[in-house]
Computed example of a mutant assay.
Amino acid sequence: MTGPSTAVVPVPQACGRVPGRIGGIGIVVEHYWRWYRRNWRATVVSSVLQPLLFLLAFGVGFGALVSGSGRVEVATGGVGYLVWLAPALLAMSAVQSAAFESTYPVLSGFKWQRVYHAMAAGPLTGTQIGLGHLAWIALRMVASGAVYVIVIAAFGGVTGPGIAISLLAATITGTAVAALVMAFAATVENEGSQFTGLFRFVVIPMTLFSGTFFPIDRLPAIVQPLAWVSPLWHGTELARSAALDRWQPLAAVGHVAYLLVLLVVGAVLVTRLFQRRLTP
Score class of each variant (00 low, 15 high):
Y104W: 15
Q128N: 08
I165W: 11
V261H: 05
Q96E: 09
L226S: 06
A75F: 07
A118F: 06
A91T: 15
Y81W: 05
P220K: 10
R38L: 03
T125C: 00
R38E: 07
G126I: 00
G16P: 12
P249A: 13
R140E: 02
A14S: 06
G23Q: 11
A179N: 08
V60K: 04
V74K: 05
C15R: 10
P12N: 10
T207R: 00
I216S: 05
N190C: 02
A86Q: 02
F201I: 01
R37G: 03
G174P: 09
V72C: 07
V253S: 05
V29P: 01
S67Q: 09
V203I: 10
T187V: 09
W84N: 07
N190R: 10
I129R: 02
V151S: 04
T207I: 00
V151F: 03
V45D: 08
T196V: 15
A146D: 04
I25L: 12
L90P: 03
P231W: 05
L269I: 09
V151P: 03
P225K: 13
A221C: 11
I22C: 10
T279Y: 12
L167C: 02
S166I: 00
A135M: 07
V83N: 02
L65C: 00
A154V: 02
S230K: 12
H31F: 12
R41T: 15
V256P: 06
A42W: 03
M119H: 15
Q128V: 06
Y36T: 13
G156K: 01
C15L: 08
F195V: 12
G160D: 07
V79G: 08
T6G: 08
I222G: 11
T271K: 01
I25Q: 10
H255Q: 09
A257E: 04
I25E: 11
V202Q: 13
